[in-house]
Design a protein around this nucleic acid. Structure first.
Length: 258
DNA sequence: ATGGCTGAGCTACTCAGA
């Protein structure tokens, strides 16, 4: 089974790129983040024609997450955590993976910049709420896949110049510690688990020629619970969509699991 | 390198992203 996660930076502005990518990559399930639209304006009919069901948690202008799936996803919920600002950042569901009932958690974690502002506090509080919920969740079900845009650079190796990001909300030590806490509940950052020293990124800024200079960062992740780790076969960061005309600033990460 | 570029909402310009 192929499960892919992609921050598309607007589903409507990106629709042609997304349709082409879905045709080429042929995922069973696609986790989308930053759809930037309300549910009623999500192009569900367009995806139906491509063979996908849509499960959408949108809002006007900003944020928003969704699943596209060839098969039905059960038990869809959008109230996984209480979001203090009522932003649409998490959608969850359940599927079967090799007879294991598996929870899918699609996340768009707050950015948090600039640091030492209300935005930064919101990110910290958000991550704390998410951690508390995950502690309970992993005890209810040992089979969990969390994926999406975490807005966290886990380690120095995961950004082109870590010194420039030491006081940035994506790389501050106290934020990276939250990511580490999450891993320590019983998860694996699958990309780093399978690639101990590889330097690859999932995001490049639009400006200053960041893409051309490979000034990127790895902030989109697949976290696989320990009980599912042996089911995971491969993970790939697919840079092609970032090289297209009118690209998202993020590129997809592709998981094979069975 | 606190700038640069892109999208939404709206029609002039702000907010947000990372």
């Amino acid at each position: 089974m192929k499960i892919i996660s992609w921050n598309v930076n607007s589903v409507r502005a990106r629709i042609e790129n997304i349709l082409q990518y879905v045709k080429d990559a042929n995922p069973d399930i696609l986790f989308l983040q930053e759809i930037k639209t309300q549910n009623e304006n999500f192009p569900s009919e367009t995806f139906t024609k491509s063979g996908y069901n849509s499960y959408v948690f949108g809002q006007k202008s900003y944020n928003g997450v969704a699943f596209l799936s060839k098969s039905k996803i059960e038990n869809i919920k959008t109230d996984f955590i209480k979001d203090r600002l009522n932003q649409s950042r998490v959608i969850t569901g359940e599927i079967m993976i090799n007879k294991k009932k598996t929870k899918l958690i699609n996340v768009y974690v707050p950015n948090g910049n600039p640091v030492d502002t209300e935005k930064y506090k919101y990110k910290k509080d958000w991550l704390n709420s998410f951690l508390i919920k995950m502690k309970k969740e992993i005890q209810l079900n040992p089979n969990i896949i969390i994926s999406g845009d975490f807005n966290i650079i886990p380690e120095e190796i995961d950004v082109y110049d870590f010194k420039r990001y030491e006081d940035d909300a994506l790389f501050r030590l106290e934020i990276r510690k939250k990511f580490r806490e999450l891993i320590n509940l019983g998860f694996n950052d699958l990309y780093r688990h399978l690639n101990k020293s590889k330097k690859e990124y999932t995001f490049w800024d639009y400006f200053a020629g960041s893409w051309q200079k490979n000034y990127g960062m790895r902030i989109d992740h697949f976290l696989i619970s320990n009980n599912l780790l042996n089911n995971a076969e491969s993970i790939n960061i697919n840079k092609k969509p970032r090289s297209k005309v009118k690209p998202s600033d993020h590129t997809p990460i592709e998981l094979e699991i069975s």
